[in-house]
Design a protein around this nucleic acid. Sequence first.
DNA 1: AATAATAGTTATTAATAATAACTAATATGC
DNA 2: GCATATTAGTTATTATTAATAACTATTATT
Lengths: 152, 152
Amino acid sequence: MARKHNPADPPPTISDATLRGFSGYVMKRAFNAIQADVNASLAPLDLRMLTFSALSVIVDNPGLRQSQLADALSIERPNLVIVVDELERRDLILRNPAPGDRRAYALQATLKGMRLYTKALGAVQAHEARMTKGLSEDERQALIAMLSRIET
Amino acid sequence: MARKHNPADPPPTISDATLRGFSGYVMKRAFNAIQADVNASLAPLDLRMLTFSALSVIVDNPGLRQSQLADALSIERPNLVIVVDELERRDLILRNPAPGDRRAYALQATLKGMRLYTKALGAVQAHEARMTKGLSEDERQALIAMLSRIET
DNA sequence: AATAATAGTTATTAATAATAACTAATATGC
DNA sequence: GCATATTAGTTATTATTAATAACTATTATT
């Protein structure tokens, strides 16, 4: 039998067992830990998860439009503007005029952007290894596959 | 061979394959979807993920201190204050004086709080089922177990 | 040519998270 | 018992992210 603690005292241990049955709760906790760690990993390069993600997609898809980038990252176009502003201001990317459409930009990483991205990628890979060291590689892949199936 | 699109045109498809190899990226996407859905599910009850989580731990651990709640939820104490303020203002919980420590409060759900919590729990269970309908129950459990191993 | 749709932007709001500094009260070391 | 350190809760501040409405300029549609 579980011995009841004196109700005049605070409970000696706190249970969040109910919440732990929900993937959203454990995911929030895991994501907060990951976000903090990746941001700390990228801070020496003056990048954050969001700016790194944007830079990555730009490096891998030269010439893409801002709206394509927003779609790819699942963020709203208005929120992407300041991200692209920041990357452009630091000369990591170029907003080239899109040939044939004067409304749009063709985004492209600069040499400086590609070099920084290479470093950042290494930092994020080290971060990933650190955060998932409690999982086997098969488990890590399974985790990614399951998370990919949860999106909207 | 992959046919190269005309470089004067925007890339016809955008790849985020590099990022998809990182658990943090897919977790962010999944969590954003979950957060939006759970908040929409709880909106009719005027709760959010955070206020629901706090209420849940208070219901399950009557008499706990604010600092215990903050620890349990892994949020900073200053950020918990307004959450508890909100629950108290709506008469969902009580900040009882902690017997024997005049600095502290013993948190307790009111009858109104417990009734709202019961409804909210049902809404969140339906949300969970909806979000994880692409996973078997074994997979869902495995996902939760792996996410639990990622925390800090 | 008129109208609708698209690309990007500005502005605004809400929510969350992190930190420093404070008050009041309790615990500790001597 | 007293000086000091620690703890509980709070206030204030800042940064980041996300969501939405409304706007300009341009392109596509009818």
